[in-house]
Simulated scan of single mutants.
Amino acid sequence: MSPVLQLSNVVKAYGEHRALDGVDLSLPDDSYISLLGPSGAGKTTLLRVIAGFETPESGTIRFGGRVINTVPPHERGIGFVFQNFALFPHLSVEENIGFGLTNRKIDPVTDPAKVKARVREIIELVGLTGLESRAVTQISGGQKQRVALARTLVTEPNMVLLDEPLGALDANLRSRMRSELKIIRERCGVTFLHVTGSETEALAMGETVLVLDNKQIAQQGDADSIYNRPNSPAVARFLNCYNLFSGRVEGQAFATSSGALAFAGAAQPAASAAYAIRFDRIAIRPAGMPAGEGEVKIEGDFIASEYTGSAINSFFSLDDGKVFEVESHLSHSEPETYEPHGRYSLVWKREDALVYV
């Protein structure tokens, strides 16, 4: 699949502060892309640079095969859906959606019949039929999200940028809108670049996931690769599903303040050394039980459990004071109960550990 967007060594600075520091990426056409990163990583700045609202200090932006560094936003063929929706409160749903068609600088649509027909198509596409004349102040958050998306799609962009599009919605609505956004994108056949600070949202939605860290793309890949094989301690930490230990490699073990932790396979090169084990790869056993062949064991005192619906996350205090987390899925077993402040063995397979040096 040929790339629709390519960035090469893009730098964006505000005075002495670099918001983007040599960003490289290549995005496929007709795809859903998630851009994940912590607050302050530069996610919104990156979107604004792609859209043309900000000009990079250096680097190249190619869209559809042409360099667009100096192309004005309205000539790029890229739509932008703002985090706060940016709807016109004095206009109806239909008028908000049609605004971009009638007021764009290039080829505005002046025939009211054509505007109405095009708006009707988009309203049906995003599931707003029956709300055409409703004021946007009288519709729900999810409906406002659809109006904002429809207002962008009606202009037929070749790519849509979505800045934290589900951030203002409640948890149930966010879950429903995830699937709806993917369905709408497939019907349109254009690339969506969806910015989020939620690792769950990014992994669930993105056919390709980008992780932005330290003002650069730290990793790009499918959700399975990102989740199971984060390429750095920073990416593993941000996924919020790995216990991380600092220390150093000594032979086939990683020396930490919690003891020597064995691992199998080669260590990955990274900016900092770390040992990582995923929350759901760990078994909880009685204290004193020896580790089996090929297993790693540490001990800790039970602190508390947190029920999440499909799983229980249990927290333990290790001897060096570190909090260690274990995720136990409930699909095939009843939840275990643990003695408050009780001592337990925490066990995993060597090959499940990831080591960075």
Rank of each mutant, 00 (worst) to 15 (best):
R120F: 04
S175Y: 03
L5I: 10
D29M: 06
A236S: 06
V347A: 00
R146K: 09
N172R: 13
R134T: 14
P335Y: 01
A283G: 07
A266M: 13
K144W: 07
P38T: 06
E339W: 12
D301G: 12
E121S: 06
D224C: 11
V93R: 05
F316N: 06
P56C: 04
P28S: 07
T45Q: 08
P108I: 12
F99T: 08
S225D: 14
G37Y: 11
V4Q: 04
S345M: 04
N69V: 04
E94A: 15
G206W: 00
L91S: 07
V81Y: 04
A13V: 09
Q6T: 15
L46W: 10
L203Y: 00
M289L: 15
R48Y: 10
S331D: 15
G221V: 12
T44G: 09
E339T: 15
S58K: 14
P165G: 03
Y338E: 00
G167V: 13
G42T: 10
L193S: 12
G52Q: 06
L239C: 03
G65E: 09
E186A: 13
S92G: 02
R146E: 04
E334H: 13
A255F: 06
G100N: 03
G37C: 11
D213F: 14
M1V: 15
P157W: 12
S26Q: 12
L210F: 04
G309Y: 03
G292S: 13
V357P: 05
L203Q: 02
S314P: 09
V136C: 13
L244Q: 06
V67Q: 07
V119D: 08
E250C: 04
T308R: 15
I217L: 02
G251M: 10
W348H: 03
R176Q: 15
V160G: 02
H90F: 09
S331E: 15
L27E: 00
R62F: 06
D30I: 01
E164R: 03
G15K: 08
A311V: 10
E334K: 14
N9P: 05
V147H: 00
G22W: 01
V4P: 00
A51N: 08
N9M: 07
V119I: 13
K182H: 11
A19T: 09
T55V: 15
E180L: 12
E57S: 13
A204F: 13
P112E: 08
S179L: 12
A270K: 02
P112R: 07
Q145C: 11
P269L: 14
A234N: 02
A41R: 00
F238C: 05
F254N: 02
S246F: 10
E250Y: 02
Q143V: 09
K182C: 12
N9H: 14
